[in-house]
Design a protein around this nucleic acid. Sequence first.
DNA 1: GAGTTTCGTATTTTT
DNA 2: TACGAAACTC
Length: 683
Amino acid sequence: MDLSELNEAQKQAVTYEGKHLLVLAGAGTGKTKTITYRASYLLSKGVPSNKILILSFTRKAAHEIVSRIKNHGGSKELKGVEGLTFHSWCNKLLYRFPSIFQSKGVQLLDEDDQQKVMSIVCKRNPDAMEQLRLNVETLTDLYSYTRNTKSTLSTAITKKLLANKTKTQIANELIEIKPFIETIFRDYHQKKIEKGYFDFDDLLIRVATVLERSKEAREIIISEYDHILVDEMQDTNPLQWDLLNQFKDNTSLFCVGDDAQSIYAFRGADFRNIHQFKIRVEGAQVVKLEQNYRSNQEILDVSNWLLEKSPLDYDKKLQAVRGKAGYLPTVLNVQDEYKEADWVSDKILRDFHQDGKKFSQNLVLVRSMQHALALEASFVKNKIPYQNIGGRKFLESAHLRDLISALRVVNNFNDEIAWERFLTLWKNIGAVTAHKIASKVGTLNNVEEITDLINKEVKSQDVEKITAILSAVDKNRLKVKEALLQVYENMESTLANKYKLDWDQKRKSDVPVLTKLSENYNSIGEFITDSILLGSSKTDEGPLLNRSELSVSEKKDIVTISTIHSAKGLEADTCYVLNVSPKTFPSANSLNSIDEIEEERRVLYVALTRPMNELIITRKFDSIYANEKKVKDGEETTKSEVYFLNSLPGELVNQEGINQHSTRVLDSFNIDPFDFPDVLNYD
DNA sequence: GAGTTTCGTATTTTT
DNA sequence: TACGAAACTC
């Protein structure tokens, strides 16, 4: 196998002969390359492909690695190498070994479904909710966080809800709210058991618990794999570590990560999984990759500066193998997002026409997809082709969930959430009627009994369509596409009416894509689970789309707009990091603790380390003046002064778009940085 | 008056 | 897009 493209450190990692290895790899140092070469290397040494498992945190990353292995291997046995997310991996195990994991017939819930279940539970505990004054989303987050971090409820509440309180306040409030939260969580758990619901976390928890408890199960499962390669190790949480930990006696762990790119702490990611790797895994070695091949030094200087400003010690200073480019990154000060959008569109078009730069060499990064709306409008106006990564996924869109809900209710009569969605679609059926039906239907035995019930109890002009859909799906349980087509036939006018704003232009065209996706499934249940788990953005090259050979878009020359969270591992010639304004970096919602603020810093760091040649940062300067606005209870004055680009040294960037406001703008950048305590104990 | 529809408002990040 | 309040319908 040809290793000549690797540097010494990479080679050392790839050909490592010991059992366990941790690769600490800074941004752009060839992390993905190392992990793909490792897999190819193992294959070339005769390790069977089905004994190698590649795990990542996001679907995109997992898929990226597998497709890269295929590129430089080319041989057939590579097909067997699995590249999965932790969740899809566990789902697969549950599916393959239903008797070991007691997982037959479970109904997977996606995030929206999970919140609906939580919402039902909250409504039946009005007293607790009255006391708590928390919304459903916060509770669902807290529940998931507690389980992913394997922490006590008290610890989780303290971290998530009381982060900015004093010790006495915490103690008092804990006593006050914890019992109510506990009531709700216990009830939620009960509800899941009743209905056979599984939320995302249950996938991992079920596997971890069974492996922990049963020696026999563990022996069967861990012998499945000789090598587990973990990408983005810094994003794994204690629950995921628990899983990996079960394997270490039998299986070699090859983990790659970068603590400076840990941006999922809000979901429980814990970079102690990296820092303590050597302690936790006996005999593990560590290899560091420090040479950056991606960017020029000027870009890295800005990234390095950002990390240096942190009170945490990342011990990281990226060196560009490529050296200096001779020009600086740009900071563009704009008035509002429309000016920002026009400027970016203009530049992309100019580069395209004058320099022959491809659209696909541009990557636009945003904190949240919300920030990209004006730009998308501008792209449409200027006829710039683009794709979105991150944000709402294809199969998470409401109209497709409406269609799928029809499959779900027939697949599982007990699926209350799906019943409510499906029934409230129709004229004169609201939450009350839907709930009444949903609660009666679970005990019935076949679809005829259900249509009888609906005929009897529902007064709606659409009853005929409803029953027609249910019967059609029932008859086509094994022909998913046919079932979907018949659902659509009966539902089209209703959907067109519900989404009249953008049905014709936008949503309608998703339906053939969905039916195309369904072609390769011959059981409704499998299709439903996959559609929840894979979520699959329309332009994603995930397994769902590959199966049906729909990944046409990847060959097209288009600009990519991505959330920063989805952009890890991506790179591009030119990157636009939009709206790096006060209150966005760090986000106004993340100012409760140093941990939160530092995570925001790492998010920005990930963004800044994406470009190869050109980095353009934009920010709205009028939002700087908005700092004083809306001070709640007089407490937030200091918080509004935290802004990462405060005191950004002028020699690191070129500023553009400064007009008569310029001096005032620059002055206001000189506010003292937030006063961080300088010693932190992360143990 | 129960139930449904409609309208206005606010929205981080991912499995 | 989801929630709450207000308006509307049986």
